[in-house]
């Protein structure tokens, strides 16, 4: 199966459902922060924040985290593209919901857990992803999944978001 997996309308509904699931699991969502993983996870967290705030009736803190330096496949010889890490206050004692676009090997999430640990000790960490495409290499799973897509390891999932200058679409492509 290749082609469009999520069109703009479906992607919007999927994010609304993810926000509902986060609210359902976490009650009033006090002491809850959304932390997007650079880059597209940040855009998604910035969209989930207002959706969730609308459901629970109070603002939800949204932060971003760059995990480049915590990766296990970091190439020392090349230019690491670092993006900001910024959290809305201390995460110690809070529920952190990590947000990313695609869950694949799980190595990005492993790096994100390490990066979070450097910044404080959350009460609990949950994971929300737009797409889970399988092929995990580590014992990591998502708490909230927009859509499960069975893929072959060579296929590509492309997530495009309006904030990056496109339209909201997720496509599955064969290797070019």
């Amino acid at each position: 199966m290749t082609g469009v997996i999520l069109d703009p309308a479906t992607l919007g509904r999927t994010l609304t459902r993810l926000a509902h699931e986060i609210a359902e699991r976490n009650g009033t969502c006090t002491d809850l922060v959304l932390v997007g993983i650079q880059r597209r996870g940040v855009t998604l967290a910035e969209r989930l924040g207002p959706l969730l705030a609308g459901m629970v009736g109070h603002p939800i803190g949204v932060g971003c985290i760059d995990v480049t330096m915590h990766r296990d496949d970091l190439d020392w010889r090349s230019l690491p593209e670092l993006r900001p890490t910024a959290l809305p206050g201390d995460i110690t004692g809070k529920t952190v919901v990590l947000v990313d676009d695609v869950l694949f090997h799980g190595r990005t999430i492993r790096a994100a857990l390490d990066a979070l640990h450097d910044l404080g000790r959350p009460l609990r960490v949950q994971l929300a992803v737009l797409i889970d495409r399988g092929h995990r290499e580590l014992p990591i799973r998502a708490d909230y999944v927009g859509k499960n897509i069975p893929t072959s390891i060579h296929q590509r999932i492309n997530v495009r978001l309006t904030e990056d200058g496109g339209t909201d679409t997720v496509t599955l492509e064969e290797p070019g």
Partner: peptide, 18 residues
């Protein structure tokens, strides 16, 4: 980030950088 990369490690050098 880059979680949709295929078999290539995500830290790989972009073609433009020596």
């Amino acid at each position: 980030m880059n979680s949709n990369a295929t078999a290539t490690p995500t830290g790989q050098t972009p073609a433009s950088v020596t």
